[in-house]
Design a protein around this nucleic acid. Structure first.
Length: 524
RNA sequence: GUCCCCAUCGUCUAGAGGCCUAGGACACCAGCCUUUCACGUUGGUAACACGGGUUCGAAUCCCGUUGGGGACGCCA
């Protein structure tokens, strides 16, 4: 315990009373360190009720993407977990854009991330913070560290560092900054070289993080080198900026990808150097592709907007992403409200998971079935308009609206809904897909001609009336209903899949239905 | 290479030493329903990576092996 190391707040994956103490410790940490000590102590002896904690504790989480690409699905899940955790505790969910790498950050990427989060329905509190704009504050903190002796100037050139790493590798050692400027007298500084500022990290002992997902993880300080805080051009590095910003923004819980676990040790060292209380951490396992390989923006993974364009609903994504790495008993279909109520860090699994499009589609089919018809029309119209190359008229949207209820149980994505609705707006003669064309045999065509005649004579153009006509016809000719209904479907929709076919005829209307039947009867 | 993490059906997961003959969901197969395709419904195939411990008892705890992943930048 008295080791010269650094430890994050002692926390594991406790239940019952232990958990309450832990939460309490977390909350006081946001106030001041001194209060934290005494409150934590008294909490340890007394009984603390959850209700009270909710009143006192203000949870603050954040999502901190770097704008070097779109919002990929792993980032989306990280954002979701942070959002859910904040909502669960009636806390605050902040957004910070980590744009300190000026060369790689783009406004287009910032916009894509913002759009992606909005589409997912993950609204953040307050304004999005630009990390780059806080660079003066970062420099100020480093000046403080320089003054208190926890940081120093390093005059190594990039070439020199490369050479050092090469030599270490050649000697079979692991590449690490050797601290050559750590204790050197400033008077030895070479002229004309702007120094980078490094952290004077502890060399003895170990650093421990008590992670909400990974449990207690420790590393020997000898494994960690003196990281750069401020580049020679005066800009902050990620490791420094994250710590300063999380501290200044009052972040209480850092929920992020597993790939940051090893960064945490170094960040803890910075917290310690500044005498700041560290937030609590939860490192969630990464999402892998269907092949098990790493999924990241560097490996061509899809942006969240790609899922939108494939016709997935945002509520599908929230549910699917939630279940990827998090579980609540046997629950599968989980509404967002329910998710907020149930979500805890302790429910997060420790092993990486793979993307499964089939399951995502199944969930999407569920949410499409549940979705409001007018909303589906609004979401599907753009897909249709893109395909037919023109805007839909109000009358056409009305027609779409009438066909949606019968069709939505049959599709898995909005894109399928759009494709399957195209016949409503298609120009004659209708293009037939292969299966539909195969249905239209000479025999079928002559039956359709007979049906067309009967339809034309019907005073009532309702789906029910038309169905009765076909049923009567089937009875008279001894044909099975399917033998008539299927060719009818092919003739009217060009496909073998559609909403209930008599409904289709009703929506299409008398004139359009008869002329389409005529087209087919003519053999065209 | 060094350090760190992970390991239950094909996939997502339940599982907190006896409720496990290992449960659910997706996918797959078969039946029912049916106006095609679906939805729905009934049933089925399918997993504790391996080896040692600890224990009366291990999917669960410990150690090792193997396999997978992550991190080792004046990127984030």
């Amino acid at each position: 315990m008295p080791a010269p190391g650094v430890t994050s707040p002692p926390l594991s994956r406790p239940r019952a009373p232990l958990f309450l103490c832990a939460c309490f410790a977390a909350l006081v940490m946001t106030v001041t360190v001194h209060k934290a000590r005494c409150c934590a102590t008294s909490a340890g002896n007394g009984l603390v009720y959850p209700q009270k904690i909710v009143l006192i504790m203000k949870i603050v989480t954040r999502f901190a993407p770097s704008p070097t690409g779109f919002l990929h699905i792993g980032g989306g899940r990280t954002a979701l977990f942070n959002w859910l955790f904040a909502k669960h505790h009636q806390g605050t969910f902040l957004l910070r854009i980590e744009d300190t790498d000026r060369a790689r950050s783009t406004q287009a990427a910032v916009d894509a991330i913002l759009d992606g989060l909005k589409w997912l329905g993950l609204e953040w509190d307050g304004e999005a913070v630009s990390q780059f704009e806080r660079k003066d504050r970062h420099a100020e903190v480093v000046a403080e560290m320089l003054a208190n002796g926890t940081a120093y100037r390093c005059y190594c050139t990039p070439e020199e560092l490369d050479a050092m790493r090469e030599a270490q590798k050649a000697a079979g050692q692991q590449p690490r900054y050797d601290g050559r400027w750590r204790d050197r007298d400033p008077s030895e500084a070479p002229a004309g070289i702007a120094p980078a500022i490094r952290l004077k990290a502890p060399r003895e002992g170990e650093t421990v993080v008590n992670d909400h997902v990974q449990g207690e993880v420790r590393v020997q300080n000898s494994q960690l080198d003196d990281l750069i805080l401020l580049r020679s051009d005066g800009t902050p590095t990620y490791l420094l900026a994250v710590v300063v910003d999380d501290h200044d923004m009052g972040v209480t819980h850092v929920v992020r990808g597993d790939d940051h676990l090893t960064n945490t040790f170094r960040q803890l060292q910075i917290y310690n150097a500044m005498g700041w209380a560290a937030p609590e951490f939860a490192h969630i396992p990464l999402i892998h592709g269907p092949d098990g390989a790493k999924l990241s923006k560097r490996h061509g993974a899809l942006g969240i907007e790609a899922y939108r364009d494939m016709g997935f609903l945002p509520e599908t994504m929230r549910n699917y992403l939630l279940r990827l790495g998090w579980g609540h008993g046997d629950a599968e279909i989980i509404s967002t409200e329910q998710a907020i109520e149930w979500f805890t860090l302790e429910g997060i699994g420790r092993s990486p998971s793979r993307l499964d499009f089939a399951k995502m589609e199944n969930l999407n089919a569920h949410y499409i079935r549940e979705a409001d018809d007018a909303r589906l029309v609004a979401l599907t119209s753009p897909f249709i308009e893109a395909k037919i190359g023109r805007a839909l008229t109000d009358a056409e949207k009305e027609r779409l609206l009438r066909s949606v209820p019968g069709f939505k149980p049959r599709v898995k994505t909005l894109l399928e809904l759009a494709d399957g609705s195209l016949y409503l707006f298609a120009n004659r003669p209708l293009a037939l897909d292969d299966k539909a064309a195969a249905l239209l045999t000479a025999e079928a065509r002559s039956q359709l001609a007979a049906l067309a005649e009967a339809f034309a004579a019907s005073p009532d153009w309702s789906g029910a009336a038309l169905e009765q006509i076909v049923r009567d016809h089937a009875e008279r000719t001894g044909l099975k209903l399917g033998k008539l209904a299927q060719p009818l479907r092919a003739a009217l929709t060009g496909s073998t899949v559609s909403p209930p076919i008599f409904e289709v005829a009703e929506i299409l209307g008398r004139a359009e239905t008869l002329v389409r039947l005529e087209d087919v009867a003519k053999g065209g």
